[in-house]
């Protein structure tokens, strides 16, 4: 196993947990509730109704962000901004193939996932850029999306330092991924 540090058992164990966690909760939570005398189905429906209200409350926030992002991306403005960064990042040793992910990863999870998939298709999943693109994709969450959904759900519009902090973390994660991929696979 390449770059895994010779701990396939540990990895297998973690994967086992991630496969079993949801089924275990689906089994355990209602069973434990029933045992404690909770009217589980009625309580479930009550909570689920709140989930439905939540989905509608998020809609305007999410739509506002995704439409602005769509206009920014589809008109080519995003590409233009990226090409401005190329000289700096190639000096830092960032392969040009993964550079768009620096900008796209915090903005759109779907778009950056598509980009990572494309890089793997073109260069192979086990190539250096393929490994790097998968690492970048997996190492952070989509900042703009998370902020929009989480703050939108409670109607908060003044997000204060959460946005700059989230974006700075994405940049740190990106360069962290470049560094560790050079160390492990370079």
């Amino acid at each position: 196993m390449r770059g895994g540090g010779g701990e396939p058992v540990f990895i297998e164990f973690l994967q086992l947990i991630s496969v079993w966690a949801i089924p275990a909760m689906v089994l355990g939570i209602p069973a434990y509730g029933l045992w404690r005398g909770v009217k589980v189905y009625e309580v479930f429906v009550e909570g689920a109704e709140e989930g439905l209200r939540l989905a509608f409350r998020i809609t305007p926030f999410l739509l506002g962000i995704l439409v602005a992002l769509g206009v920014f991306r589809d008109t080519g403005a995003m590409h233009l901004l990226l090409s401005g960064f190329t000289p700096l990042t190639s000096w830092l040793g960032v392969p040009p193939e993964v550079l768009p992910m620096l900008l796209i990863r915090p903005l759109s999870g779907g778009a950056s996932l598509g980009l990572a998939t494309e890089i793997m298709k073109t260069h192979g999943p086990d190539s250096f850029v393929g490994l790097l693109a998968s690492t970048i994709q997996g190492s952070t969450d989509t900042t703009l999306y998370v902020l929009t959904v989480y703050f939108g759900s409670v109607g908060v519009t003044r997000v204060r330092w959460a946005l700059p902090v989230g974006l700075a973390a994405d940049v740190a994660g990106f360069f962290g991924a470049v560094y560790f991929c050079y160390r492990l696979f370079g």
Binding site: M120, P125, S139
Partner: peptide
Amino acid sequence: ALRAAAGSLDPAAIVGSTLAASAVATGMA
């Protein structure tokens, strides 16, 4: 899963690098 679907010989190879990069991001945050 996506790496496996793309025909990777070692789909889980990124676990170590992802965890390290993720720790950098969370530490910064």
